[in-house]
């Protein structure tokens, strides 16, 4: 393929002929759904008359391809998960691309196909989008923003805020922590580490519908992305009249992730995940929910990691592996930049 046809040109974002060719040959072809096919300025959507969950997220991950995923898959999973943890059923996504002039079309194609596959797997349609091209060096390869909407039934209204959380509830997570952050770190050439760590990047809406199907007493859900498990636990306990205890020995951490965290001085509790959901469930339903989660491929390592307590209200405590106690707080200081 001649050079000018194999790379993104400024003209691909001009709104003219090149833009239309790109939309038709790539986005419409692969995202493939009737709403997008109509190519209206705004997609017209059938939505049952429920409450709607509505979220948006920008993705700037570096590198754009990493073990376990790529920026496209991440852009779908991230938004699907934000809708799903609110207790909603994700239905439609938008996708806006900011592309650097000269970006290889092959790479864009790979990203778009990956998004299409992930959307299909998650059962959502990418129904509208936008493409902008900026001059070389004005952005780094490609940035993607996805927006998602999903419908919410009344019994799930309080899940995202955790209004029903009370002492005695159990804290559950669907598997190991820290995989995404350390996979990104290991994929970055600058560290020159070759441990094959794989991102946990996944759409969790299937798992989540099994969770809410298994119990009517799911009191809170949140995906543990940037800031890791520690941040979700802190958010859940701050300014509340209950406290949270987490037991470090119950946390599952991949050996490679642990090794790399030791090496680099990271605490895995603060390292980003892209396929992990923290669930708070009434004590009596906790085992039922764990068993239901374990049947799903994204929940086979699901486990109870802690509980909601009346002690130390507003604070989360970690019982460390050696039996000591310390506080869990938000990530302090440097985060890993461009992790998602």
């Amino acid at each position: 393929m001649p050079e000018k046809n194999s790379r993104i040109l400024l003209g691909h974002g001009s709104g003219g002929k090149l833009t239309h060719e790109l939309i038709d040959s790539l986005f419409v072809k692969h995202f493939n759904n009737p709403e997008l096919d109509r190519q209206t300025d705004a997609a017209l959507l059938e939505v049952p008359a429920h409450k709607i969950a509505f979220t948006t997220d920008a993705f700037v991950v570096d590198p754009i391809f990493f073990p376990g995923g790529d920026i496209g898959k991440l852009a779908v999973c991230g938004t699907v998960n934000d809708v799903a943890v609110s207790g909603a059923t994700p239905l439609y996504l938008s996708a806006a691309f900011i592309i650097e002039e000269g970006f290889p079309l092959q790479d864009l194609k790979r990203i778009v196909i990956s998004m299409a596959e992930e959307a299909k797997m998650a059962g959502v349609s990418i129904v509208t989008g936008d493409t902008k091209v900026v001059n070389k060096d004005k952005c780094d390869k490609v940035f993607i923003t996805t927006t998602g909407i999903g419908t919410l039934v009344e019994k799930h209204y309080s899940i995202s805020e955790g209004k029903q959380v009370r002492a005695g509830d159990k804290v559950i997570i669907n598997g190991s922590i820290g995989d995404h952050g350390m996979a990104i770190m290991s994929a970055r050439n600058e560290l020159k580490l070759s441990a094959p760590l794989i991102s946990d990047c996944a759409s969790l809406n299937g798992l989540i519908s099994e969770i809410t199907g298994a119990s009517e007493k799911v009191h809170f859900m949140r995906d543990a992305t940037r800031g890791g498990l520690a941040t979700v636990i802190t958010e859940l306990s701050t300014n509340k009249d209950y406290g949270i205890n987490i037991y470090e020995e119950r946390l599952l951490i991949d050996e490679g992730v642990r090794g790399m965290c030791e090496l680099l001085g990271f605490d895995p509790m603060y390292v980003a995940n892209e396929g992990k959901v923290v669930v708070v469930v009434a004590d009596e339903d906790a085992e039922i929910v764990v068993k239901a989660m374990q049947k799903n491929k994204f929940g086979k390592d699901a486990r109870i990691i802690g509980e909601v307590v009346t002690d130390h209200p507003g604070r989360a405590w970690l019982q460390t592996v050696i039996g000591g106690n310390r506080i869990i707080d938000m990530l302090a200081g440097e985060q890993l930049p461009r992790i998602c």
């Binding site: 001085g265 460390t320 000591g324």
Partner: peptide, 12 residues
């Protein structure tokens, strides 16, 4: 300093 705080050693 970090290990002492991270593992909660003062509490023991």
């Amino acid at each position: 300093t970090m290990a002492i705080q991270k593992f909660g050693i003062p509490s023991l």
